[in-house]
Design a protein around this nucleic acid. Structure first.
Lengths: 142, 142
DNA sequence: CAGAAACTGATACAGTGTATCATGACACTC
DNA sequence: GAGTGTCATGATACACTGTATCAGTTTCTG
């Protein structure tokens, strides 16, 4: 298994490649997200970027979602969060205590997913997998 | 892999066992859910049970969620749906065209999940896995 | 630099779920 | 079977997340 600690993709370039314009608000959003090591919520981004409208923040995140460089994840309590996708296909771990999001890749997962996929009626177009954990930090401090 | 087609659990008994009262509204909600073969939304249930208040519908679903007999799933478009959990641990398939929810169990999944779990730092407290598909019906009629 | 196209931000709205609280229903005892 | 404490209900208001609208602005291209 590979726990990732890799460089962020160039989010701005991703948008540009997809034909979107490079504007000040998009630059600000993308810069901020690039620094986020953990999951984040849209409102959190709005709060940290008072110079960018709420609608624009949501729109930018949506574009990045569609481009596949940001993932949306569901917390066990029903809440939602976003997380940067650092390149390759991966899955997430979410700490149920502190909310920290991690990601991992594991070839055995993909192999099994392919096997299962072959048995599911219809055509697989995607999948989602999340692990809910209590992270080491939270275990230590409790 | 096992595609499920089993009897619904006795939802009302589940609530009773957990110390909740058996009331007319809860009976109505539970009866309706027991008939739902596919996923459902809370608002849909509200609409089909005009004699039960919206808050009560949400509260009942929440209780069933906590009891583990109802699952909440996330659609690829960000929407949400509920689905009956027919007993054992399982995972879901969601058709991205018609929204129909299926469920499956596969021992190889669980085996791999355990293996991965051993490598993830911290303590695993749960996981979620969903397949997004285009179901056979939708493939046929397109 | 001019014009078309894309983007922004303020606002209003939509969907989903929760808090509040006066009223009503359950279940339990006598 | 009536009385009673507790729990549940439902109307309403609110919170949160996200989207639609639209006049005004910025960006890109020629």
């Amino acid at each position: 298994m590979t726990l990732s600690a890799r460089a962020n993709p160039d989010l701005l370039a991703t948008l540009e490649d997809r034909g979107y314009r490079v504007t000040r608000p998009r630059r600000e959003v993308v810069n901020l997200l690039g620094q986020k090591q953990e999951g984040f919520s849209a409102e959190e981004v709005c709060a940290e970027l008072p110079g960018v409208g709420r609608a624009t923040v949501y729109r930018s995140i949506k574009l990045l979602l569609e481009a596949g460089v940001v993932c949306k994840l569901m917390l066990p309590n029903g809440g939602q969060k976003y997380s940067l996708a650092r390149g390759e296909h991966h899955h997430h771990t979410v700490c149920v205590m502190c909310g920290t999001v991690g990601e991992f890749r594991d070839s055995s997962v993909e192999r099994v997913l392919r096997t299962i996929g072959a048995d599911i009626p219809g055509k697989i177009v995607g999948h989602r997998m999340e692990f809910y954990i209590t992270c080491q930090d939270c275990l230590d401090t409790s």
